[in-house]
């Protein structure tokens, strides 16, 4: 029990506590907040952010950052829509191509970061503009996807009774989370990511494959962004070059609120999951309130983020002193 409350797990516990308090307070204040429908909607709304935030968590754990995910996601939606609607590709093939291209884009960024030693911030900032520009070249307007596959699968899911279904988006999100947790904790690749984030030079001297791991991490994040894009087309039935503006920042916020340290090497996939749910809960509360300005969403996220960063710093200082 003592170890559970040691400072290492403290950020994670704090995140869980904040989520419980938020949810509890909202449930006490609003009728119908405590319902399966609300929870399902929360998952459905946040599924693509969740998938992207998990990719982002890998990148941050490795000591990097990826600003391109929002644009890559937008570009993926447009690419997918145009492959299906304008080129007539079979849907599964178009999705696979989108995933591969997203991963390749991320991997290319990782290669540049590693090969030339350029800060990830700059490389992915360039990537952000490139992907967004590409999205607009593919289509300057939102492209609707009318296809039998979409008609069938956008509503498909596990029936939960009472007319509720656990749809594809949340299902993918939860599966990706489960796989990510196993990969991060239980595989060599995952531990190498933590190692590089802890100290790149040490990792190299310990004979760990720094370059390959780094490129793979960015490829994973790019692939995650493409998957997020695919999920958003399923949820919204269209591809849109303007989608996901600022999404990269939401993803970073979710990871940091979940206890992942921005300098790398420390963090949890499950924390990111909680972070995504916290951001989603705030959004849901605002929806319930109705009269509140959406600016409050940003304000609340900002306040929480600042609080968590300060808490991490305090913990870091305290653990150094003891």
């Amino acid at each position: 029990m003592n170890r559970l409350f040691s400072s290492r797990l403290l950020p994670l516990l704090a995140t869980a506590l904040v989520l419980l308090v938020l949810f509890g307070a909202a449930g006490a204040h609003y009728e119908h907040f405590f319902s399966a429908r609300v929870v399902l909607n929360l998952f459905k709304d946040r599924a693509f952010l969740g998938v992207i935030a998990i990719g982002m968590t890998f990148v941050i754990l490795s000591g990097g950052i990826d600003l391109s995910v929002g644009s890559v996601m937008a570009c993926s939606t447009v690419l997918l829509a145009s492959l299906i609607m304008e080129r007539g590709w079979p849907v599964p093939l178009a999705m696979a191509a989108t995933l591969v291209l997203g991963a390749a884009f991320g991997g290319a960024q990782g290669w540049i970061i590693h090969r030339y030693g350029i800060p990830a911030f700059l490389v992915t900032l360039a990537g952000m503009f490139l992907a967004r520009g590409t999205a607009f070249i593919l289509s300057s307007r939102s492209l609707e996807i009318r296809h039998a596959f979409y008609a069938k699968n956008s509503a498909w899911g596990l029936p939960l009774g009472e007319g509720l279904t656990f749809t594809l988006g949340p299902m993918v999100f939860v599966s990706v989370l489960a796989v990510a947790m196993v990969v991060a904790h239980g595989t060599r690749f995952g531990r190498n990511v933590y190692a590089i984030g802890g100290s790149e030079s040490s990792a190299a001297l310990m004979g760990l494959p720094v370059g390959g791991t780094r490129i793979a991490v960015y490829a994973l994040c790019g692939g995650g962004a493409a998957l997020g894009g695919i999920l958003s087309t399923l949820a919204l039935g269209s591809g849109d070059p303007t989608r996901g503006m600022g999404l990269e920042l939401d993803a970073i916020a979710a990871a940091v609120i979940g206890g992942t340290v921005l300098t790398g090497g420390r963090g949890w996939m499950v924390g990111t999951f909680l972070g995504v749910l916290i951001l989603g809960t705030i959004k849901t509360i605002l929806d319930f309130e109705g009269s509140l300005d959406p600016a409050w969403l940003r304000l609340a996220s900002g306040g929480l983020l600042l609080g968590f960063i300060l808490m991490q710093k305090v913990i870091a200082i305290r653990s150094r002193e003891t």
Partner: peptide
Amino acid sequence: YQEVNLLPNLSLAENITMGRQAMWGPFI
């Protein structure tokens, strides 16, 4: 090395076995 070149964020056990972990399929 003079300044210990290991990973402060990982456990002693992981630092000692890193790169040569005992595996079960793809899992450590």
